[in-house]
Amino acid sequence: MTLIKTLCALLLMLCCITVLAATKPIGGDFTLTDHHGETFELKQQRGKVVVMFFGYTWCPMVCPESLSHMAQVLRELEDKADQVKVVFITVDPERDTVEKLSQYVPYFNPNLIGLTGSAEATKQVADAYRARFTIKKKHATDDRYAVDHSADIYVLDRGGKVASIIPFGMPAQHILKVVSSVLEEGSAEAQAVKVSKVIPVKPPAKKLAFETLEKVTVEVAVPLVTFRPVDLNGQSFDLSAHIGKPLLINFWASWCPPCRAELPALNKAWAALKDDGVEMLAVNVGENKDAINAFLEDYPIDFPVLMDEAGDSMAQWKIKGMPTTIMLNASGEVVYHIAGERAWDSEGVLSQIRSLSQ
């Protein structure tokens, strides 16, 4: 009888522990390192609304889209923007160093804050907010791995408590409405707090997909003839002069790891295609001449490099992340609109590009 009572007591304790764990509120204070190398303590942000989300710099689509939305929210908050802190927490601290984040995060908006820390500290913060992530290394030395991660946006009130969790995919205007509500009222009751859902952001699982181009119909906002990037000497470059030949335009940035990773393949593709009547251009988005030239010293590009310092191409060409490559046929029609890295020097891709000349 005593043994049965003891077992019942243990079961009751386990049930209580389980219930307490399940009802533990989402969130909590943490300490990480920001992209300036300074200590960032959440508790020091009391009095401000904090908007935070998890991601990593190699993320091809989800994170750039979220960061772009956050940049838009800060712009539209105008004089209230100084009451809001927007925080991007990397789930890939092995690659996302302070230096890497300092190149990546400010590109979207100088007031965004990138945070990193040890693997243990990162997991503790993610667990506290019930965010999930899985590093998809194929082997111990794999340095081009993807990370599956939850992509919800957490809005913390002025007291540091989670007031709302916004699921990934909501437009910037919706995020702005929620943040404004928390600023004004301290809560956003219409937004239910729930456990994050994992958003797969890994590259194509099959090698075949990486070595092929998927045709996508994209309605470009402006005709090709009105898109006028400049060359590294500041001279306007007339893209319309290239109509009549297949044209590959690669949009890239120096802070973008996948952009750097695919450059050798693009150079090899240029060597293989330049005698086949195919034109290739590399358009840098958002950076100035000095930054581009410094980058090219370490990562040379063999085909023409152009600049779009104002970033107009992002809206004009429906670009949501870097790198993005657009291919036009000889008539100037968009045939391929490719987001993310590709094996441009593979036989499959080269064959598809050459077919545009036929």
Rank of each mutant, 00 (worst) to 15 (best):
I4N: 06
C8W: 07
L11D: 14
L14N: 06
T18F: 13
T18S: 14
A22V: 01
G27Y: 13
H36G: 04
F40Q: 14
R46C: 04
R46E: 15
G55P: 04
Y56H: 07
C59P: 06
V62S: 05
D92Y: 15
P93W: 14
V105W: 15
P106S: 13
S118C: 03
A119H: 12
K123W: 14
F133M: 01
H139D: 11
H139A: 01
H139N: 06
A140D: 14
A140Y: 04
D157H: 13
G159F: 11
V162P: 12
S164G: 08
A172Y: 10
L176G: 06
V179G: 10
V182Y: 11
A190H: 09
I199Q: 15
K202G: 13
A205V: 10
T212I: 00
E214S: 04
A221T: 08
F227G: 01
D231C: 01
F237Y: 10
L239W: 07
I243S: 04
L247E: 10
I249A: 05
A261H: 14
A261V: 04
E262T: 00
K268T: 02
L273N: 02
G277V: 01
V278W: 15
K289E: 15
P304E: 15
V305N: 12
D308H: 01
D308V: 00
D308I: 00
K318G: 02
T324H: 09
I326A: 14
L328Q: 03
L328N: 02
G332D: 14
Y336C: 03
E341K: 03
R342A: 01
R354D: 11
R354F: 05
